[in-house]
Amino acid sequence: MHIALDPRTKLYMILVVSMVVLMTATTPFLWGVRIFMTMVPIILLFIEKKYASAIRFLIFYGLALVLTFFFLSEESSGILTAILIGYCGIVVQFMPAMITAWYCVRTTKIDEFMSAMQKMHVPDGIAISLAVVMRFFPTIKEEYGAIRDAMKMRGISFGDGNALKMVEYRMIPLLFSCVNIGDELSAAAITRGLGGNVKRTSIIELKLHLWDILLMMLFTMVLAVFVYCKYFG
């Protein structure tokens, strides 16, 4: 089965999930809604055949949930538990937003994204910059991995224990490669007519399919139920 979602649906999903993430769940029912909401992007990841990341997210999120519910409480103290609480806090609280964002970044092609932005009349400046940001996180990770390998090879991973040096040794090469990649990227983009005066056309015709509408309705419902139960229920 293949479901190609419209980028606008994905953006809407991000919006809803971010809003729900802001409101903490207080009752078991709200927790249920939240977990259900988190499952949707994970299932979508499975459908897109991104098994590795889907399973990783599932394990991380599940583990944090179990720990939070069964082992941690207001009274827990001690350094190890403090770190554990921190870990579970960040995962349980922000993981849904991160999974959704990850799903959208991983499955949206840049041209789809740009054409969706054009359709929503987002100013070019914001759209282009946002597209670059989206594309760039994996690049930074890749470049950073290469830098770390190089540092390991020369045995200077810890910069002699000097915090300033540790930052400098990593940051400077990273910036060098990012600036270069940026130059290449702009050359490539300008060749494809980005920043011209005419309206750009897109090879991809975006249309809202049945799945998009269903998902949008689903997420609207999730948001409505959550707000209603938290503030009026």
Binding site: D124, G125, F136, C178, G195
Partner: peptide, 17 residues
């Protein structure tokens, strides 16, 4: 221009990291 937008995007990404 497009080049400026791309520069902004790159440095925003780094800053967020």
């Amino acid at each position: 221009k497009a080049k400026d937008f791309i520069t902004v995007g790159i440095f925003t990404a780094i800053l967020i990291v």
